[in-house]
Design a protein around this nucleic acid. Structure first.
Lengths: 344, 344
DNA sequence: TTATATGATTAACGCGCGTTAGTAACTCGC
DNA sequence: GCGAGTTACTAACGCGCGTTAATCATATAA
């Protein structure tokens, strides 16, 4: 199709500048400890600019043994990725840091079936220098293999008994605070719909916060009021529907994910009930649309973009061989009160 | 920190199997045209498995001159990326195809200041074999340099007078259809709030559809009723607010982006008006939350994930040297009627 | 037996660059 | 004028793999 375009190599730059390839490399990479006369430096830079020289990244990686890229690794199905309301924020946060550090960002999908192999491949193929793992699952045995530091890794979310570095929020405390608010409004029949199946670490943590708030108020928890959703609004709709049909009386629902809460709200409305007049709704996450929901959703703000940025900064440290200050970094959440909850 | 872990190379596999490195390469890559005895093949595969051999991707790329990766290139600010409601769907669609083809996906951010250089770098650094460009801007001169086929490229969205391959929807026709529906409901004072500044191709196209629908109905367009938003709900809020304060009478608003429509709805409600009783609202995009909005938003369904998949398939063709069937592929939109518009 | 085909395998080069060890020229002190 | 130091550079190796051209053994034909 297209005629063979001759690639411009550092040798071409060296020839044009009348120096060796080594010198070109020293100049363009600003290598310290070697003395290059200002004149030579100029010659090289001018030659490189004139030729439009752009180093071949594969060759650089092979020679330097650094890919200058990190990976964002997700262990979900494409369907769940498509409906992940935080992904844009996370990518945005990551890009801010990687751009500044002149690193590339790769998105990796690890399917649950071949996890063990997949993590090893990521580590050993050396396409990336480090990775950020999104919402790891508790039953993810393959993760353990990574703990031997095959590749710098930072978790977003937390894994019990793991010695991997992680960035997270205190899901339990945040959930407790949210439910405390419902209790303070006078609610006692409070249901809980989770954000995800129990194998995703955040889910049981938020449930625990819910239980702790009840316990502190002397409310005996009703197991029938706890339902496990599965990330998307559809699952929230299903949970809420079965909750309403169960015959249990409920005046408020703590839904541990705004996304799921959207579906729950549909079910409530479909049953002819209103939020917050008949049922108060408390979300979790503060996705961008929560404030535009009707009624605007009270929820717990999760600083997704900041989490991503911090995870990335932590990863940079690890990649440079420095130990980050803490093994686990918790960012602050904030209870956002809008108008989906009312006092009894 | 960690002791030097000896990398397992194809030479190690060759040694263990008692063959040459070349044979290992032939076997593991299933190279056609070379006869390898079944016995040797087995020996090699067993050795590779036993050692847990994983090829170094940089070395493969350097030798084969193919990176086995594609890039998703965006030209927006991190802020706009964070609030892009389609990104998850697009990434999901892309991952489906790349996973199946065993390609990697890189996310690239190109800042408007250094576009020219940035595109060249992407092309020449050879870190990716092809790229998918998201919502190119009309004033994006740097794109022209790519048309010389430095690297296979597919646009998501359209660029006038470009001979790059692209995947899009018929924004004009879709917008026209949406506004026609408003007109059919009896509305004649219909405002238009765009999805983005005019330099993003979809914006003027959707405005044109709006104008065409008015013209077909013999309605003289009022320029004061056209406002340009900027992707996010905040800008929609601002547009709607200034529209309401302008003193113009309006019974319906066509907002060329659901995301922007969310903000517009807030402004309407804040003014003490209701949707659809006082003002009918027609969106565009059908983001996942549109159906959970209140009232559920009537809108134009944009098949984002399918667009991404098709773009990716098209790109694969280009990367294999095949010309795709068409230069520009238009996918179907669908008018989704929910309950944010009412008949006058 | 000798030439020829064919099946199975490998030696060796090149991809483009980072980097170490070494060299050449040029001071400077005595 | 001669070794010792400095300054400014370069030759050459290695990163790990894909791939071409060549080699060797074996089977077949003449």
């Amino acid at each position: 199709m297209s005629s063979k375009i001759k690639r411009i190599t550092s040798q071409d730059v060296a020839n044009l500048a009348g120096v060796s390839r080594t010198t070109v490399s020293f100049v363009l990479n600003n290598v310290e400890g070697f003395q290059i006369s200002e004149e030579t430096r100029q010659k090289v830079q001018r030659a490189a600019a004139q030729l439009g020289y752009i180093p071949d990244s594969a060759a650089q990686t092979l020679a330097s043994r650094r890919a200058r890229a990190i990976g964002l690794v997700m262990t979900r199905s494409p369907h769940h990725i498509a409906s992940d309301s935080f992904l844009p924020q996370i990518i945005s946060g990551l890009l801010k840091v990687t751009k500044q550090q002149n690193l590339r960002l790769m998105i990796e999908l690890v399917e649950t079936e071949h996890q063990n192999q997949a993590y090893l491949e990521l580590a050993r193929a050396k396409r990336i220098d480090g990775m950020i793992l999104l919402t790891p699952r508790m039953d993810d045995e393959a993760l353990r293999t990574l703990e031997n530091a095959e590749i710098p890794t930072v978790l977003m979310g937390h894994l019990e008994d793991s010695n991997l570095h992680s960035v997270d929020v205190d899901n339990r405390a945040a959930a407790e605070q949210a439910v405390q608010h419902l209790i303070a409004l006078g609610h006692r029949q409070i249901a809980c719909i989770t954000n995800a199946p129990a194998s995703y670490t955040a889910a049981p943590q938020r449930v625990q916060g819910y239980l702790d708030a009840l316990a502190a108020a002397g409310i005996f928890p009703n197991p029938n009021l706890i339902h496990y959703a599965d990330f998307d609004p559809e699952s929230g709709y299903a949970c809420m529907k079965s909750l309403l049909q169960s015959g249990e009386t409920v005046t408020a629902v703590f839904v541990a994910s705004d996304n799921v809460a959207m579906g729950a709200k549909s079910a409530i409305r479909e049953a002819g009930l209103r939020v917050p007049e008949d049922i108060s709704l408390m979300g979790f996450d503060d996705i961008p649309w929560a404030k535009y929901s009707d009624p605007p959703l009270s929820t717990v703000h999760l600083p997704a973009e900041a989490l991503a940025q911090q995870a990335c900064v932590m990863l940079m440290d690890l990649m440079q061989g420095q130990q980050p200050a803490v093994l686990r970094l918790d960012l602050e959440t904030e209870l956002i009160l809008r108008s989906s909850c009312r006092a009894l």
